[in-house]
Every structure is written in structure tokens, then in C-alpha cells.
Design a protein around this nucleic acid. Structure first.
Length: 415
RNA sequence: GUGGCUAUAGCUCAGUUGGUUAGAGCGCCUGGUUGUGGUCCAGGAGGUCGGGGGUUCGAGUCCCCUUAGCCACCCCA
């Protein structure tokens, strides 16, 4: 009974009509990003695994346990893309386009993780990367773009969380201060972090266990230990967001999962109650990544937004419903279907959205299909001739000539 | 990687302390309808009850294993 072949764990099919929301969401994002000067980048789903491991950091969960990787027939160590930024940064290094390089993408990402609500092994992200400028104005622009996308699909209940992670000038000193603080309180951390916090002390801020939250409540924060340049940058970003009217909440505990982040970091959190895996998207500045991947020192910033997460949030808010693209006409042919074959082609060439029934089915069956299709008009081919009639409400059939039926239909549709 | 719950028709689900030939609604197909409006009526197709093993005279039902799904932890989008 269960089919022999089914989707792999953590993967899924999206069928009509639900798939309409996917295409509509991407189209909306393409429009907004294009309006802001971002161009589409299409990059491979596979890369040398080091493209991802070098930037994200060996300590990150994604690299240490969630990568889909394999050796190809040429002996190359390949990984399926777990996140979008590294691929675009690699493309930047490879092609060296003029800066600022403003790119958007919509692509699948793969992470070998245990599936649950809002988390799949193949999920889809839309995102942007802006590489080649450290101007805080681009930080503002990028964050604003994400907010505009959410608003465009009708989301209201979300918060922009904002933080800064400093840069190589000020982070070492801060890191040392944090370690000193944690050393004194190691016993108060949760079991996992009590022994592992030294590897990446910032991760304790990410821990949601009560013990870690309490122990780090008064821990030193990066935002209070910024060098002059980072402080100025952060101030400019905040002022810019204020100026364009984007509301945000400072969250000094906000730490992002990849090592390559620096300075501005942000996350979009829904305020509707939902599953635990609900972050709508996140991103930040990664001023060292391009250099790590072999390019010149180049600043960059971007975000990734989870398509599935956005749609879940839309469900929670009752917005962005599935819409069926309405058909204009439905052709019913009870004379064998030969006439329908050519008429359908003519109507479609004339720009009329047209469907039909197949298999020479009964009048009733074809009429039912026509009604279900949502088409406005039916074109009926039967022994007594050809007629056009309304489908949405009752109306008298109007006899038409085969030669003029297309023109007739177009007039009716535009009336 | 860890834990909890679940698995019966395409979908949503019933199925009694283990007992005859497996049930409903929806959907689908045909007919009523050489016909005309989503209604209604009648009929039909569709199941090795996720898979394997065990207990039993007898298992959809009880036990074990396995696979998958959902939810949660960890972490992330």
C-alpha cells in the first residue's frame, strides 16, 4: 500500500495549488530586490566542502554534523549547500564582479538534521548578499528589504532583533573578558556548556537552557566592548533604521551560528506563538569571509529567509492565502474532442487562459470539470453547434460561429 | 544524536474483552440526464490494516523488531 518510493526524510513535495505560494513569494521578493538594485545570482547546489567549512567554522553545528557531503567520481570532496552566503562569496571571489556586488537568490539548502515543525533537511531560502561596501547604509538597506518582504506577504507579528558582534579589533579583548566571566561561573552553566564553553564562548548566549540564561544574565556584552570604528558603525546602522522607519529591538544575546559574522547581526523573530523552530530569517555582516575564501579583504552583508518558515508564519497570521490563477475559458467538446484540440490552441495563442476535458467524457463530467476549474466562460462544442456560456452564474447560451469564436470570447472577457 | 506520540481506502478517520467476507464521510468513476449548472438518487472502482517476526484455534486489535511521519531537545531558516 505505501508506495515503494517516497520522499526522503526531511524532504517534501509541494504540489498545486500550494506551490502557488512558493512562486508568488519568490516573485514578490524578486520584485523588491530588483527594485533595490539587486540582481539574481544562480549558483550550484554543490561546492567544494571547504567553501562552507572554512567560513562557517569547524565548531559550527552545520559543519560538524549537518553537512550532506560525498566524494564524487573524480575524488573531490563535495558538499550540498547548507547555506547561501558562502556560495555567493565564492562566486564573488571567482568572478570578481564590480562592487558593490548586490545579489539576490532563491535556492534550496540542505542540512542533515532531525526534521520537525519548521525544519527540514531540504529547505528553501530567499536571500541577498551585498559584497564590497562597509557603508552602514547598506546594512540599513538589507534589513529594510527583509522587512518589506514580510510586509508584502502580510506579516505584521514579527520583531527585528539587532546586535553587533564587533570585529577582529575589538572581539579578542571582549572574548577574553567573557571567558574570564565564564571561568568564574562554569559550574552554573548547563551540563553541555559547563565543559565546552571555552571552544566558542559566545555560544552560551545561544543556549536556551535556564541555567545558561541565568548564569550569563550579567555577562559582559560585545555591544559594551566595541572599538571606536565598530561603535560608530553600529550607531550609524541604528540611526539609519530609525530614519527609514524600521523598528528594531536590541538583543545583546543575539549570536549567529557562523564564525564569519562580524559587526551587524540581526534576526527576524515572529511574535505569534508557533513551533520552536520559528525564526523567520537572519543575517549579518561578514567582513572577513571573502578573504577567507581567497579573495581580497572585502566587506559584505546579507541575509537568508526561510521560505517554509515565512509560510508557516503567514498561516499563523491568516495572511498570504493560496490563490488559484483563474482560467478564462473551459472548452467542452462532446463531439469527440477534435474541435477542442484546435480551438484550445487558438484560444491560448490569443492569450486566453484555457483548459479542457479529455478522454471524450460525458457531458456531465465535462461540465463538472468546467465548474470546478473556476473558468469564467465555457465554450461548448456539440451537435447543434458551438456556444459560449457563463460558468460563474446561470445564463443563456450564446450560439457562435467557429470562425469568430476566439474574437467573441475575447470580447466577452473584456466586457 | 536523544526522547514522546502515531501508522487502517487518494484524504480525514471509526473499528467493542482478540472472533464470520474490512467500515463511514469526502474525493474519484458510471448512470439517472440526445443531456445544461456544483444539489439529489442509484451503482462502481479503490485495502496483503506501513513492513517483518512472535503469541493464539483465530490478530487491524496483544508482544518484539524495523521503517516512516509528527512533535520536542540540541541547533538553525
Amino acid at each position: 500500500m505505501a508506495p515503494e518510493f517516497q520522499t526522503q526524510p526531511g524532504t517534501f513535495d509541494v504540489l498545486p495549488p500550494d506551490s502557488q505560494r512558493y512562486s508568488a513569494l519568490v516573485a514578490t521578493f524578486a520584485d523588491l530586490a530588483g527594485r533595490a538594485g539587486f540582481g539574481l545570482v544562480v549558483s550550484p547546489m554543490i561546492e567544494d566542502i571547504k567553501v562552507f567549512s572554512r567560513g562557517a567554522g569547524a565548531e559550527s553545528d552545520i559543519v560538524s554534523k549537518e553537512m550532506y557531503d560525498f566524494e564524487d567520481k573524480g575524488g573531490r570532496h563535495i558538499a550540498l549547500r547548507p547555506e547561501g552566503t558562502a556560495s555567493v562569496a565564492r562566486a564573488f571571489v571567482q568572478h570578481r564582479p564590480p562592487t558593490p556586488f548586490k545579489a539576490w537568490y532563491a535556492a534550496p539548502n540542505f542540512r542533515y538534521d532531525r526534521p520537525q515543525k519548521g525544519r527540514h533537511r531540504q529547505h528553501h531560502q530567499i536571500g541577498v548578499e551585498a559584497i564590497g561596501t562597509a557603508d552602514p547604509a547598506i546594512d540599513v538597506e538589507v534589513i529594510t528589504l527583509a522587512v518589506e518582504l514580510y510586509q508584502a506577504v502580510g506579516l505584521q507579528q514579527f520583531t527585528v532583533l539587532l546586535n553587533t558582534m564587533g570585529d577582529p579589533t575589538c572581539r579578542p579583548a571582549y572574548r577574553a573578558a567573557l571567558l574570564t566571566f565564564l571561568d568564574e561561573r562554569a559550574g552554573e552553566l548547563c551540563d553541555e556548556h559547563a565543559t565546552h564553553y571555552r571552544a566558542n564562548p559566545l555560544r552560551v548566549f545561544d543556549c536556551k537552557r535556564e541555567a545558561c540564561s541565568r548564569a550569563t544574565e550579567h555577562a559582559p556584552r560585545q555591544a559594551d566592548h566595541l572599538c571606536e570604528a565598530c561603535a560608530a558603525h553600529f550607531s550609524a546602522v541604528k540611526a539609519g533604521l530609525d530614519a527609514v522607519g524600521v523598528a528594531y529591538v536590541l538583543d545583546t544575546r543575539l549570536v549567529r551560528g557562523f564564525d564569519y559574522y562580524s559587526r551587524t547581526t540581526f534576526e527576524f523573530a515572529p511574535t505569534t506563538i508557533g513551533g520552536a523552530q520559528s525564526a523567520l530569517g537572519g543575517g549579518g555582516r561578514y567582513d572577513g569571509l571573502v578573504e577567507l575564501l581567497g579573495g581580497p579583504p572585502t566587506p559584505g552583508i546579507g541575509f537568508g529567509l526561510g521560505i517554509e518558515r515565512i509560510l508557516l508564519a503567514c498561516d499563523a497570521e491568516g495572511t498570504f492565502p493560496v490563490t488559484r490563477p483563474a482560467l478564462d475559458t473551459f472548452v467542452i467538446d462532446t463531439m469527440g474532442g477534435g474541435e477542442a484540440l484546435t480551438l484550445v490552441a487558438e484560444l491560448r495563442r490569443a492569450g486566453v487562459r484555457t483548459d479542457r476535458a479529455y478522454d471524450n467524457r460525458s457531458w456531465n463530467a465535462q461540465l463538472k470539470a468546467a465548474l470546478r476549474s473556476g473558468a469564467r466562460l465555457a465554450v461548448v462544442i456539440e451537435e447543434r453547434g458551438m456556444s459560449v456560456r457563463t460558468l460563474q452564474e446561470k445564463g443563456e447560451p450564446e450560439m457562435v460561429d467557429r470562425a469568430t469564436v476566439v474574437e467573441h470570447v475575447r470580447k466577452r472577457l473584456h466586457a
